[in-house]
């Protein structure tokens, strides 16, 4: 790990000021992605801004058919939340599939979404559930938030404060994971709303999480796994690696989407 200067702000305003002042710095929440990256010397932040004292950024609220999860809420909390399980069971299940128990004890929703790892789980939920990402400056729709590989619409000094998820009629997340890293090789999130179905895919796209318009149209007309018979995503633009090549990932997307439709509740 390269050397850095450590800061421990006690207010969101101070954290944002520090993040804005140190453009080569990084904020740390659970650190489940940032620390491994720093240990491999793939990241060399000049400053580390520790958000762990910002207790106002923890908590879950369900109101007016919207689940709002504050940024520093840990995966273990979301996975076990009775409110989330009742409102959007797929979201609690997704949180319970991230990493392993020790990782879920530290990792946060804000960190996962801000990092936008192309194989992370939460970005798919944000996109399929048409979530809004709230920051200390503005509110951003998920469709505009995930820009590319590890890239988001967040500006300098802009910190996620909460993410709000509209409650769907039905939803499900199916993850085909790498058993060693526990990241998604392909993860498919399907959400059925009164005005249509949204389908997102993580783990497969070479520029990160994406929606599948073709699947959404077919499922909006007929919410049954058979509606996806014969449909597939083109393998070009999908990741190929030692775990799965692009053609295999393309095949998995349809398989996992069908499973998600069948399991949706």
């Amino acid at each position: 790990m390269y050397a850095f200067t450590y800061h421990r702000p006690t207010s969101l305003a101070d954290a944002a000021k520090l993040a804005g002042a140190h453009s080569d710095g990084k904020v740390i929440a659970g650190g489940m992605t940032l620390l491994p990256t720093m240990k491999q010397r793939l990241a060399a932040p000049s400053d580390i801004i520790d958000l762990s004292r910002l207790d106002d950024l923890r908590g879950i609220e369900v109101k007016d058919n919207v689940v709002t999860i504050k940024a520093l809420t840990r995966h273990v909390t979301v996975a076990n939340s009775a409110e989330v399980k009742k409102a959007i069971p797929a979201l609690a299940e997704l949180a319970g599939m991230i990493g392993d128990p020790a990782v879920r004890n530290k990792g946060t929703i804000g960190g996962s979404v801000a990092n936008n790892d192309p194989a992370a789980d939460y970005p798919s939920a944000c996109l399929a559930l048409n979530a809004t990402i709230h920051t200390n400056q503005r509110a951003i729709k998920a469709d505009d938030f995930f820009v590319g590989l590890f890239e988001t619409a967040l500006g300098e000094g802009e910190l996620i404060t909460a993410i709000s998820f509209p409650v769907p009629q039905k939803a499900n997340y199916q993850k085909f994971r790498n058993p060693a890293s526990r990241y998604a090789i392909v993860g498919t999130f399907v959400a059925k709303f009164a005005d249509g179905v949204r389908v997102s895919v993580t783990g497969a796209g070479s520029s990160g999480v994406f929606r599948v318009a073709d699947f959404e149209k077919a499922l909006s007309a007929n919410f049954a796994s058979s509606a996806l018979d014969g449909k597939s995503v083109a393998a070009s633009g999908l990741n190929s690696d030692i775990h799965a090549d692009a053609a295999y990932r393309a095949h998995l997307i349809t398989v996992m989407a069908k499973r998600a439709v069948d399991a949706a509740k």
């Binding site: 620390l35 580390i48 020790a102 530290k106 060693a180």
Partner: peptide, 28 residues
């Protein structure tokens, strides 16, 4: 040393965490 194996698990405020992926300063 890459958060996979769990040999380094300790409890911090009652939670099992991987101490190889935790900065000591964040445990103040």
């Amino acid at each position: 040393d890459t958060s996979q194996c769990g040999c380094c698990v300790v409890h911090v405020n009652g939670d099992a965490v991987k101490s190889c992926t935790t900065l000591a300063l964040t445990c103040e």
